[in-house]
Amino acid sequence: MELWLLLTIDRVLKKPAATDLENGFELKFSIMDINQQKEQFSITYIRAIASVAVYSLYRPEIDNDSVDLGIISRGGTGKIISPRLELQLKCTARNFLEENYLKYPLMLKNYNDLRINALVPRILVVVLVPEKITDWIRQTEEELCLKYCAYWVSLHGMPDTTNITNVTVEVPRINQFTPDALQAIIQRINYGDLP
């Protein structure tokens, strides 16, 4: 597991070219922009959670800007054999945390795409990371720690809005995206319920 995560992270950071090595450590991160790094890191985070929960990931083939990743379970025993969940992933280093909620300014298109009916339920997952990229992971011989935490919320059935660019959504801090939480969501979908 650790090795597999490391390999993924290695791919995220990419190996520096020889000239980069000559120019020093800082250039190591210049190959990929910060948004791509955040995307890759949050995908890796979700992959780690999904693999512990014994689910697979898939990338949607139709690009609609509001689904970044899908999670599929095989061998469901309820109404649906292969229950699935689709995720809009956001990764932020800004401190949106309040006492009970994380308040995230979501783009209007994403908000509307996540609140309407879908046969495969969609949720928003916000991955909170430290500001300094080198703090995103902590590794020792005992552990590989991904920082900080991912939270989820379903916007299904949320009201229409008159906002024109963003909608600030409240993601409950209690909704931590853990393997147990993911399994509970998939179980509900398995029985034909919403996340």
Partner: peptide, 11 residues
């Protein structure tokens, strides 16, 4: 037809 993932599910 008004499902948000109509095209995805047909795919």
């Amino acid at each position: 037809h008004n499902l948000g993932d109509y095209a995805e599910r047909i795919s």
